[in-house]
């Protein structure tokens, strides 16, 4: 089990009942970011139509910035990153109006 904090920023909170910060206990051994993303899609996004706002071709949709402990996920192994207790994962949309 791993305990992480997940944030939906830049207007992305619309897909998760407009709540920006979520504390999540992931009941998976050696959970990776992919497990977290699956959990978000299956258990957090209430409207199935919103999944494509978040996911495209089984990855995070281009235009959404994913940060793992404030570091760009590109530098952390993207979907293969192994989550640790206390990690802060944030998803920030750049697609919403500026």
């Amino acid at each position: 089990m791993v305990k992480v904090k997940v944030e939906f920023l830049g207007g992305l909170d619309v897909v998760v009942n407009k709540v920006r910060v979520h504390d999540i206990n992931l009941m998976v051994d050696n959970a990776t970011l992919r497990d977290l993303v699956n959990y978000i899609c299956n258990d957090m996004i209430t409207n199935p139509n919103d999944i494509e706002v978040f996911i495209e071709d089984e990855s995070i949709r281009p235009g959404i910035i994913t940060l793992i402990n404030d570091t760009d996920w590109e530098l952390e192994g993207e979907m293969e990153y192994e989550l640790e207790d206390g990690d802060v994962i944030s998803f920030t949309s750049t697609l919403h109006g500026g």
Partner: peptide, 9 residues
Amino acid sequence: WAPPTDPVN
């Protein structure tokens, strides 16, 4: 508005 959380790890 709440600022984003600072990571601790």
